[in-house]
Design a protein around this nucleic acid. Structure first.
Length: 203
DNA sequence: CAGTGTCA
DNA sequence: CGGG
């Protein structure tokens, strides 16, 4: 039997179509300034299947030598990240009510074959802050486990406009994306899925 | 022997 | 399955 960890809340269809389209437009501007890059595994340098960028005062990056970390600059252009769009800050306040604003908004782009293996979000110093996840575009199968990699897992579908809050005991739960369902949304004209995750890094 | 990896 |  699998129980979703306490602190992980799925808010289906939280954003209406217009709100989703507005976010996509904002993300287009972010990507124009901070181009998508291919993250690689620490140590091996093996590329991941997603492409990513960030906005905020800090962005999550990874490379072969230095591994996972947050830094103020884009790893390719060396420029500071664009600001987090205001509507995302409103959403963070509305949903989490966390007293400090997010410092990083990780933008993950999944093409229809991309996946994300089970992992924990533990590169943030402030583990008391929740992570807020927003799904745009094609649906995906999202998998959640427990605090240990081998704990039992369960999965559910995430659709465009869904929001997931990952906090409390679920904050360090393993999670990942098993697969993208092609042609399940018309929001992104070139297909794929965008996931935005808002994170507080410093306590 | 793990890995925000891959394949059957 | 197997790089580092």
């Amino acid at each position: 039997m699998f129980r979703l960890p306490e602190g992980i809340r799925h808010l289906p269809d939280h954003l209406d179509r217009q709100a989703q389209a507005d976010l996509v437009e904002e993300i287009r501007l972010v990507v124009a300034e901070a181009p998508l890059f291919v993250p690689v595994m620490p140590g091996t340098g093996k590329p991941m299947s997603v492409r990513m960028t960030n906005c905020g005062s800090l962005g999550w990056v990874t490379d072969k030598e230095r591994g996972y970390r947050y830094q103020p600059e884009h790893p390719v252009t060396g420029k500071i990240w664009p600001a987090i769009p205001e509507r995302l800050l409103w959403l963070w306040n509305d949903i989490t009510a966390y007293p400090k604003p997010p410092e990083a908004c990780l933008v993950n782009f999944y093409d229809d074959t991309a996946r994300m293996g089970l992992h924990q979000d533990r590169d943030e110093q402030d583990l008391a802050a929740p992570v807020l996840s927003i799904s745009l575009g094609n649906s995906c199968l999202f998998r959640v486990g427990g605090l240990n990699r081998k704990d039992p897992t369960g999965s559910f579908k995430l659709s465009s406009g869904d929001v997931v809050v990952i906090g409390g005991e679920g904050r360090l739960a393993f999670h990942g994306v098993d697969r993208i369902y092609p042609n399940t949304s018309t929001l992104l004209k070139n297909g794929g899925r965008i996931n935005l995750t808002l994170r507080r890094v410093n306590p």
